[in-house]
C-alpha cells in the first residue's frame, strides 16, 4: 500500500520534474529511499535494501552538487509523451504479469526507466540528459533493493559510479552548451 503510494509519487516526480535538475535529483533520491523503506519488510535481503538506499542518497547528493549550475526547460510535448508512455507501459505490464507478482510496482518501475530513457535521449541540455539517466538508475535501485541479488547490486554500484564520474566529466566539458 505505502510502497504503491510512494512509487506513484516517484513516477510523478519523474514525469513532472522541476526546472532545476539539482533539486530534482535530490528529491528523486529521497523519494526512492521512501519507496525502499516502505517495501523493506517484504524485501528478500535487507542488507542490499539498505545498500541501495545509501547508494541512492549518495548519488542524489553528488548529482545535486554536480548539476547545481544547470537548468533545463521541460516542454508540454515531453510531458505528454511521458504520460503516454506511462499509461501504455503500466497497462501492458499489468496485463502481462501474473497476479503473484507485484504487477503495479513492476509496471511503474519499467515506465520510470522508459521515461528516463526518453528524456535522456530527447533532452537538449546536459542537465536534462543526466537527470533522465539518474531517474532510470533510481528505479533500477528500487528493483535491485527489493529483489536482493548480490551480483545485481555489484552491477548497480558500478553503474552508479561510472555514471557519476562520466556526468562530472561531461558537465565540466560540455556544461556551457
Amino acid at each position: 500500500m505505502w510502497l504503491s503510494l510512494f512509487i506513484s509519487i516517484l513516477l510523478l516526480a519523474t514525469i513532472g520534474g522541476m526546472s532545476h535538475p539539482s533539486a530534482q535529483s535530490f528529491t528523486h533520491s529521497i523519494l526512492t529511499i521512501f519507496c525502499l523503506l516502505a517495501g523493506k519488510e517484504n524485501a528478500l535481503d535487507s542488507q542490499i535494501t539498505v545498500g541501495c538506499m545509501i547508494l541512492s542518497f549518495a548519488s542524489g547528493v553528488v548529482l545535486s552538487i554536480i548539476l547545481r549550475r544547470q537548468s533545463f526547460p521541460r516542454s508540454f510535448k515531453e510531458l505528454f509523451s511521458g504520460l503516454f508512455f506511462v499509461i501504455l507501459m503500466v497497462s501492458l505490464i499489468v496485463y502481462i504479469l501474473p497476479p503473484s507478482l507485484p504487477r503495479l510496482e513492476y509496471g511503474i518501475v519499467l515506465s520510470i526507466i522508459l521515461i528516463g530513457m526518453v528524456y535522456s535521449v530527447l533532452g537538449k541540455t546536459v542537465g536534462g540528459q543526466i537527470m533522465g539517466v539518474a531517474c532510470a538508475l533510481n528505479a533500477l535501485s528500487l528493483v535491485v533493493g527489493l529483489n536482493g541479488q548480490g551480483m545485481a547490486f555489484i552491477a548497480l554500484v558500478s553503474f552508479y559510479s561510472v555514471f557519476l564520474f562520466m556526468s562530472y566529466v561531461v558537465v565540466s566539458r560540455l556544461g556551457r552548451f
Binding site: L137, L140, V143, N147, Q149, F159, M166, R173
Partner: peptide, 24 residues
Amino acid sequence: IKAGWGYFRLVLLFAMMAVVSAFL
C-alpha cells in the same frame, strides 16, 4: 565528445533495461 556521451548514455540505459528484464 557529444557523440561519445550519447553512445554511453544509450548503452547504460539499455543495460539497465536488461537487468530489469533479467529479474522479470
